[in-house]
Amino acid sequence: MKISIDGLHKAFESRIRLGIMSALAVNDTLDFSSLKDYLNVTDGNLASHLKALEKEKFVAVTKSFIDRKPNTRYTMTKQGRKAFEEHLAALENLIKSQK
């Protein structure tokens, strides 16, 4: 896993990815359009960031159909939660140490 010296995850350097993880940390599951709503990003942008998180195995995807329309739901994995919490702790430490 890519972690820089200060304990920050490379995967969370992008604020959009950090935003996705924040929303998933407090919601069991969210669909694509809800995520898009909270983050104010375009479809393509959000999809590529989600794909990256999926590749890291931080986010799990379930696809289904509701009224014959495809519905994609995202969940945070155990691994993702651990990484996110570590990242938060690292952020706090950095702020404290710079004071």
């Binding site: 950090l18 924040s22 929303a23 919601n27 909270y38 983050l39 938060l88 952020l91 710079q98």
Partner: peptide, 20 residues
């Protein structure tokens, strides 16, 4: 820099609140 980290934390907080 520190300001970036602070901004990260603020954003995290705001999204958590808005999404719940």
């Amino acid at each position: 820099k520190e300001e970036d980290y602070m901004q990260d934390l603020r954003e995290i907080r705001s999204i958590m609140e808005r999404s719940t």
